[in-house]
Computed example of a mutant assay.
Amino acid sequence: MTEEGRRRGRNESEEERADRMWGELIQEVRVAQTGVQILFGFLLTVVFQPKYGRLTTTDQAIYIVTVVLGACATGALIGPVSLHRLVSGRRVKPQAVRLASRMTFVGLVLLLATMTSSLLLILRVATHDGYVPYLVSAVVAWYLVCWYGLPLWARRRHTTRSGG
């Protein structure tokens, strides 16, 4: 096994690694795509409900921002599929995997923003109470811990140890 293979934990070529990473990325994207598409679909129906016209200007603005964020998240999370289709067979898979990974990360950030603004809107309409920002902040903190904090902690913990 080469020194580079030992560092990666596998003895695979750049193309083999790209193939493996592509498969893993697409599995991850499928989960996020499903969630964002369902959320976005529900968001699109809100404007056609009778209660929409009775929302405050602020709540309507939050709704519009939420829909735009949902559309952007959907685009970013579907982007890797289009990328793969357009570059397939062009011998650029390692570069495509890196780009698709970035698109997925952006999509997850946009999904976080979409879920945050959706929650804010729903709780504002449902409760009209002053505790809504605190509740939304607590949920966002939970998302940040689950989606970024724990993964970054695990990455740091398991990649800074010396091999042994």
Score class of each variant (00 low, 15 high):
Pro94Cys: 11
Trp153Tyr: 08
Glu24Val: 07
Leu120Asp: 04
Ala138Ser: 14
Leu110Ile: 04
Leu77His: 01
Arg17Cys: 02
Ser118Cys: 01
Gly23Ile: 02
Ile26Leu: 02
Leu119Glu: 02
Asn11Gln: 07
Asp59Cys: 06
Arg98Pro: 00
Val140Glu: 03
Gln60Phe: 09
Asp129Trp: 08
Trp147Met: 15
Gly5Gln: 15
Met21Gln: 12
Pro50Asp: 04
Ala138Gly: 15
Glu3Tyr: 03
Thr116Pro: 00
Ser88Asn: 11
Ser117Ile: 05
His84Tyr: 11
Gly70Phe: 05
Asp129Phe: 09
Arg102Gln: 14
Arg7Ser: 04
Leu99Asn: 04
Trp147Pro: 03
Ala32Pro: 11
Leu39Phe: 05
Leu150Met: 14
Arg155Ala: 08
Trp153Phe: 15
Arg156Gln: 09
Arg20Trp: 02
Val65Pro: 10
Ala61Lys: 10
Gly23Thr: 04
Leu119Phe: 08
Leu119Cys: 08
Val87Phe: 14
His84Asp: 03
Pro80Glu: 15
Asp59Asn: 15
Ser82His: 05
Gly5Ser: 12
Trp147Ser: 13
Leu123Gly: 07
Val139Cys: 09
Leu83Gly: 02
Gln27His: 09
Thr160Ser: 08
Arg30Met: 05
Leu55Gly: 13
Ile26Glu: 07
Val109Ala: 14
Gly79Cys: 14
Val36Asp: 01
Val68Thr: 11
Ala71Cys: 03
Met103Leu: 13
Ile64Asp: 13
Thr114Tyr: 08
Cys72Gln: 14
Met21Asp: 15
Val36Ser: 06
Phe48Pro: 03
Pro80Gln: 13
Arg30Ser: 05
Ser13Phe: 06
Gly149Tyr: 06
Val65Lys: 14
Val145Lys: 04
Ala138Glu: 07
Glu12Ser: 04
Pro151Thr: 00
Thr74Ile: 01
Gly89Arg: 11
Pro133Ser: 01
Glu4Leu: 12
Thr127Asp: 09
Arg10Tyr: 01
Tyr131Asn: 12
Ala18His: 12
Arg102Met: 11
Val65Met: 14
Arg30Phe: 05
Leu112His: 13
Met115Asn: 02
Arg6Phe: 00
Thr57Ser: 10
Glu4Ser: 11
Ile122Phe: 07
Leu112Glu: 05
His128Cys: 03
Thr66Cys: 12
Asn11Val: 05
Asp59Ser: 10
Trp153Ser: 03
Val81Lys: 09
Leu111Ser: 06
Ala73Gly: 11
Gly9Glu: 09
Thr34Met: 11
Gly5Val: 09
Val31Phe: 04
Leu150Ile: 15
Leu112Val: 07
Gly79Ala: 15
Leu123Asp: 04
Leu111Thr: 12
Thr127Phe: 08
Arg54Lys: 11
Val68Trp: 04
Arg155Ile: 02
Cys146Gln: 10
Tyr143Ser: 12
Gln27Cys: 01
